[in-house]
């Protein structure tokens, strides 16, 4: 059974695992240099990194690869596992040998999961390599503007770091096998798996991740230094109007800003800013005076965020959820395969 699994998977397994292994070697080779760069001159770190094309390319490629691995495993290993057998009728050959279907699936799923896990662990390797970058961001050395300077807790990068990619790979595999069992068509199962995995990768950070952390609330004083953006004016063609919305900078390096709003002295969320803010458009000094006046009248900017320190806690929780889901689907597969097919 082990031999058969290997024989059927070997080509695509070699492609994926070789790619991942080469990437891991590249990370291992360049990681110490990156750590040195940061240790020697933390304040110049991002400037130097900005002109180091190799490391930037590694970062970009790595992030892409780590996001792609679950989809690849789900689509090319998971979906065809049962669907191709059903489609070609070979299930009638292999399931009538002396090995039970349960053992057939257990061996195939087990070995493929191991291979997938090995590929998924590239997320950990990337996390290790990026440690200096994350330290630099946490140290407040970043000025933003590049993918490199996005905190790892941010939804854009969170799923490419730590344990989540490995867990996502397992879930994608289970999704693929389930889709194959239900749809019985390889191509259809592959398409559904691809959509499901990408959908999860997009939806999870938005819908689930914020609830896994313990959000911290912060009242920020409104001033020229803290406010980053102002939206003002009435509707189109109606001329100048009062402020409609303020956006402040979160002065917490590495944190993920979940929401912000302006509250009035009574603590209620501001729906309409005072009418006098209509006249704040007269240059920088006037604007600063207006912002100070808002503070004087008791307006504050209320913010909630997830601090950088909660990164691993959220990682572990999300990993647990994904593994549980994968386990559930796997259980279903074992139940289903014992029924008529």
């Amino acid at each position: 059974m082990i031999w058969l699994t290997w024989r059927q998977l070997r080509l695509s397994a070699l492609v994926v695992l070789t790619t991942v292994a080469c990437f891991a070697i590249a990370l291992a080779a360049t990681g110490p240099q990156l750590a040195n760069m940061f240790a020697e001159a933390p304040e110049d770190f991002f400037d130097q990194l900005g002109i180091d094309d190799t490391k930037q390319a590694l970062f970009d490629f790595g992030t892409g690869l780590v996001y792609a691995v679950p989809a690849l495993v789900g689509v090319f290993w998971g979906a065809p596992m049962v669907a191709r057998e059903l489609e070609a009728g070979t299930h009638r050959l292999v399931w009538t040998q002396s090995v039970t279907r349960t053992r057939w699936l257990a061996t195939k799923l087990g070995l493929t999961a191991l291979a997938g896990l090995a590929a998924g662990l590239v997320g950990l390797a990337l996390t290790w390599w990026c440690a200096p970058i994350d330290d630099a961001i946490a140290g407040g050395y970043s000025e933003g503007g590049m993918l490199l300077t996005v905190p790892r807790l941010n939804p854009v990068l969170f799923g490419a770091r730590g344990l989540v990619p490995a867990a996502m790979t397992l879930l994608a595999l289970a999704l693929g096998v389930t889709a194959g069992l239900l749809l019985r068509r390889t191509v259809a199962a592959m398409a559904v798996t691809l959509v499901a995995v990408v959908g999860l990768q997009v939806a999870l950070p938005q819908l689930v991740q914020p609830h896994l952390g313990d959000p911290v609330a912060l009242d920020q004083e409104i001033s020229e230094e803290t406010i980053r953006g102002i939206m003002a004016g009435g509707g189109p063609g109606s001329g100048p109007g009062p402020f409609q919305r303020l956006e402040a900078d979160l002065e917490k390096p590495g944190a993920w800003l979940l929401s912000q709003q302006t509250v009035d002295p009574s603590g209620a969320v501001v729906d309409e800013f005072p009418a006098w803010t209509t006249d704040c458009g007269g240059g920088r000094d006037a604007m600063a005076a207006c912002l100070d006046r808002l503070t004087d009248e008791g307006y504050r900017q209320q913010m909630t965020y997830l601090p950088a320190s909660q990164f691993w806690r959220i990682q572990v929780l999300e990993t647990a959820i994904l593994v549980l889901l994968a386990g559930g689907l796997t259980g279903f597969c074992f139940w289903r395969i014992r029924r008529d097919l």
Partner: peptide
């Protein structure tokens, strides 16, 4: 032993592979 309708075999595996499959699974 069972030989299914249309006698399914693995198109991508060689004759020798099929024998190995049989040896490993029985």
């Amino acid at each position: 032993g069972y030989v299914g309708q249309d006698t399914p075999t693995y198109a991508g595996l060689s004759v020798a592979d099929h024998l190995r499959l049989g040896a490993h699974l029985n």
